[in-house]
Every structure is written in structure tokens, then in C-alpha cells.
Simulated scan of single mutants.
Amino acid sequence: MDTIAGWFAGRLPDEWFDGAPEVTVDRDEIVVVGRLPAPEVDGDGARAAESGRIKRWREDTRGKRMRIADEAERRFGAKVAWGAVCGETRQLFTNLSVPVMTRLRQPERRVLDTLVDAGVARSRSEALAWCVRLVGQHENEWIGRLREAVSAVHDVRDEGPAAGSGAR
């Protein structure tokens, strides 16, 4: 993860963002989100101005972003998605929606079906995504600690015996 974030920090033009971009990585995708300077607009027009700034940045950088994404995809083997934050507005674009297979017993399916029947979600798939987002919001601290623990396991494993030494 640090290697990928470092590569993007070094590869992106300095004038694109205020500071280094936020880079998140999973098995399928690298998401790069940078902070843009907020326009000096007060009141009701501030959010519209922020959205406009993001839209302008997206259009102005499209060609370069596509070339950088192609390089990163070849180098790291994952798709690249982009986003920007401006003031209080955050927008992601071109990010993946990846199907995930799961087996659920009737009690879990009934939860999803209740969400669909109540109009909270249009499908079981959307209901499951809703549940995952809810857990992520309410258990964010715990999920963060769990990610840190997994990262520590990966670090220790990487420090282990050299590959090909016969150890498993």
C-alpha cells in the first residue's frame, strides 16, 4: 500500500492537489482522491462552486489521468479510480462496482428481503451493499484496528524466510 501511495505521490503533477492524494487499495482497485483548493464562495452557492471546481478538474485532467492509470494498472495489476475533494464536497468517478458472491441462510436472506420489501433497497444485492456500508459507518474504529492487525501480519510474513527456501 505504501509503495502504491508513494508511486502516485511521485507520479502525479504537483499542481493537481493540495498535498499528497489519499490512496486506498483493495484486491480489485486503487482509488486516488486529491484535495482541490476550495473556491471563495459563501452561502448557498458554496457546494455548487465546489462541485463545479471538481467537474472542471476532472475534464481538464482526463487525458493525463488516463495515461497515469494505464501505467499504474500495468505496474500494480489493479484498476485505478479517481476522485476529488473540494471544501465539503467529495466525488468519486470511474470507480468499480465489483460483484461479490456470498451464501446466506434463510435468516440473513429474510433481512435482505425485508429491506427490499420496505423500499430501502431495490434488490438483495443493493440491500447487502447497504448493510455493509452501515457496518462500515458504525464499526469504523473496529474495522480500522482490524486492518492494522492484518497489515502487521503481512509485514511479519514478508520478513519471514526467503521464498523458495522450502519453508511453508
Score class of each variant (00 low, 15 high):
G34T: 04
I30D: 02
W82G: 09
V32L: 11
G34M: 05
G63L: 09
D70H: 00
R47E: 14
R65Y: 03
R65C: 02
D26F: 14
R62D: 15
V23Y: 00
L36D: 08
A49N: 01
I54H: 06
A48K: 10
V23F: 10
I68D: 14
V23G: 02
E40F: 12
A49V: 09
A84N: 05
R56N: 09
E40H: 11
G34H: 07
L36M: 00
V23K: 01
P37G: 09
I68G: 11
V23I: 02
P39R: 06
W57R: 07
R35D: 03
E22W: 08
R67I: 01
D28T: 11
D44A: 07
I54L: 13
M66A: 14
I68Y: 09
D26C: 12
G77S: 07
V23N: 00
K79C: 14
G45R: 15
A49S: 06
V85H: 13
R53S: 15
W57K: 08
V33S: 13
D70M: 00
A69H: 05
G63F: 05
A81H: 02
I54P: 11
K64I: 04
E73D: 06
T24L: 11
W82L: 01
V80P: 07
R27I: 08
F76H: 04
I54Y: 05
G45Y: 11
D60N: 09
A38R: 02
S51P: 03
R47V: 15
E29W: 00
F76L: 13
P37R: 09
T61W: 01
R53F: 10
R56F: 12
A38H: 02
E22G: 05
R27C: 15
R58E: 13
R65K: 10
M66L: 06
S51V: 13
R75I: 05
G63K: 10
P39G: 01
A81W: 03
D18L: 10
A20S: 07
E40T: 02
R47L: 09
V85N: 07
R62Q: 12
P39H: 06
R56K: 14
E40V: 12
W82S: 10
P21M: 05
V85T: 15
A69K: 01
R67C: 00
R27G: 13
D42Q: 13
P21G: 03
G45S: 10
I54N: 03
L36N: 15
R65E: 07
V31W: 02
V80Q: 09
R58W: 01
I54V: 14
V31G: 09
G34A: 04
D18K: 12
P21A: 00
G77E: 03
V33R: 15
R65A: 02
A46F: 11
C86V: 04
E73L: 05
G19N: 07
A49G: 07
E50M: 08
V80H: 08
S51N: 06
A46E: 06
R27E: 09
A46S: 10
V31D: 04
R56A: 14
G77V: 06
M66E: 14
A78I: 02
A48D: 07
D26Y: 08
E73N: 11
A78D: 06
V85I: 11
D60R: 00
V85F: 04
C86P: 02
E59V: 12
I30P: 03
D42R: 12
E73C: 11
G43V: 04
K64T: 15
P21K: 05
W57V: 12
T24I: 10
T61L: 00
I30F: 14
I30Y: 00
R53V: 13
A72I: 00
G83Q: 04
W57M: 10
R75H: 07
C86M: 04
